[in-house]
Amino acid sequence: MATFMPLTLILVILWSVLFQMDIHRDSIRVGRYQETFKQQIIHPLIQAMDDQFIHTPDHCVSYQLVRASAFFPTRVDKFSGNDHVNGQVDGVDFQFSDVKLLQRHTDSKGRVTWEKLFCGTFFVAEFNKHTQGVTVIHPETWEYGAPSYTRYLKMDNPEFNQQFNVYGTDSIEAHYLLTHTMMKRLMEIKKLATEDLLITFADGCIYLAIDYGNDPNEAPINIPVSNRVIQYIHTLQLLVDVIRELKLNEKLWAKR
């Protein structure tokens, strides 16, 4: 369950190398290439992780969920996404997909440009504690700020404060969610992720976003497919690790 079978993994990577060679030889159009990449690489990868996971290539998480995460207090003018996956790990319901958020800008001459706010993986899972407010955890480098209804909360762990900025509507709730053990686990998760991590606790869910700056499931022809496959395996494993590391399956009595 939810761990790669080594043989499947080797076959998928081998197939991805052959696939790359095949693509260059036949000069298939890019669109067709992406579609084939998803069908023949991404889909089997997800199935190899857990055959109960449901992969829907042309769907994504809802925009309401993205807004509920409070990651982006700025205006979002265009929302798109794909490669929706949903399932259960250790009894915890989760879903994730790639999402892309753009903001429209018009200059004085009427020219329109699109600014990429976020492009990466967006993940939602049930959280094991009740929450009434919103607690947002940003990496130090996050440039879009926090929602206006939250305030900066200094936690009682200096190392955690160095790595993350916490904003929330309720200081007690933030401390209730971010126990010393939880802060330690989040720092461990941060070590596993190669990109910036955004985390929000709201509506009894944990929201997590990894900003890759590009669609992790698209495969540009100039990048070896095996690199993309390895990146995707890393993301999948990270998301499963989030559920296990944060012990989301260990529900408090109040939520049983």
Binding site: S171, I172, H175, Y176, T179
Partner: peptide, 15 residues
Amino acid sequence: EIEAQISAARRAYNQ
């Protein structure tokens, strides 16, 4: 459950 909440409240208050 209440002890967990009180523990969080004490930490938030102390901070």
